[in-house]
Design a protein around this nucleic acid. Structure first.
Lengths: 177, 177
DNA sequence: GCTATGTTCTGAATGAGGTTCTGTGAAGGG
DNA sequence: CCCTTCACAGAACCTCATTCAGAACATAGC
């Protein structure tokens, strides 16, 4: 019976479900260090290892945990330069074409944005020369009208999505599908 | 002797060391899915599990792998709104004060940048109201002259630092200290 | 050229921790 | 009041991380 229910939840991708305080504590811990053992997390939040495991499995299935990844150091892997590029296009329809940017390893983020620009890119490159080549390729894309590049000189903070652990939000947090 | 040398490398934090093709393949795999077993990675790159483990240990010690974290989903944890905020300050010295932004859970990234602005923030909030409150707090910080906010409407790509697996870069990649 | 030395790998052995199973107690509904 | 459902704890199992010893290979010095 329990198994049936679990499978059902997994089928519909995790229906709307409140994240309680324990879930947010677990997410907070894993978003900082995903190598923690379930037993260690259980110590922190007051659960047994299997209970933590069950919740993490649910959080993965529901999409609250998108992935578990290694955070690399830009300079260490040969990409010391970070920049944000604002791209203006001739129309909204053309942004679809730009999505092939996903295949470019320099591009880490692509957002559609409001303001005086259409797209915001976060890119990481090895050198000024590499940045110039990237910009040239961007201008080659059909529909690109112009770009504005913001080079970063130093990065003071760079982390992933934070789960707020404050308790008063409990009622508002739902898993969206 | 071997142990001595290993300890020495660890003491100076991992001296300049070339990342070879195997290292970059391993980094590429772990940056996408850090839950892979060492045996599975070894299958991909042609090494045994202990050999992969040894390399990963070195990559962690050298700083090429900064951390292993769970990537959370913004909407799922109650933060559906993502924005970039460009902050103008009255002088460079004042940016140090702004670094207390690290303690604000809405702020994910802080960069010093070139261009017509001093700081670029990446923030994720629950609602327009929360964004307004955040901007009010930013303006309360001593030295803040103005801000420009770029709201994102949709995110087409959001990933971490990518390790280029192409082979021709082999000679250029060093671990910086 | 030969030897000593350091490096990195493989395969085996061990132990920690991930994963599953079963039972129990609490909460909600008929 | 009983039944169902759910989440958890404890125990058992089993995969996989980790360590160890030895082999292969490259390098430097004699």
């Amino acid at each position: 019976m329990v198994r049936e229910k679990t499978d059902e939840v997994r089928r519909n991708g995790g229906a709307a479900r409140v994240l309680d305080a324990l879930d947010r504590k677990i997410l907070g811990a894993l978003s900082v260090d995903a190598t923690l053992s379930y037993a260690a997390i259980g110590q922190e939040v007051g659960l047994s290892a299997p209970a933590v495991h069950e919740r993490v499995k649910r959080l993965r299935a529901s999409g609250a945990i998108r992935a578990t990844v290694a955070q690399l150091d830009g300079p260490a892997v040969g990409k010391p330069m970070l920049a944000f590029i604002h791209v203006d296009t001739v129309g909204w329809g053309k942004t679809a074409e730009l999505l092939s940017l996903e295949a470019w390893p320099e591009v880490e983020e692509i957002h559609t944005a409001t303001g005086d620009t259409c797209l915001i890119l976060k890119v990481r490159v090895a050198s000024p020369h590499a940045l110039e080549g990237l910009l040239a390729r961007i201008y080659d894309v059909e529909g690109v009208r112009g770009t504005r590049t913001y080079m970063t000189l130093s990065t003071h903070l760079e982390r992933t999505v934070q789960a707020d652990v404050s308790a008063e939000l409990e009622e508002e947090l739902y898993i969206k599908r």
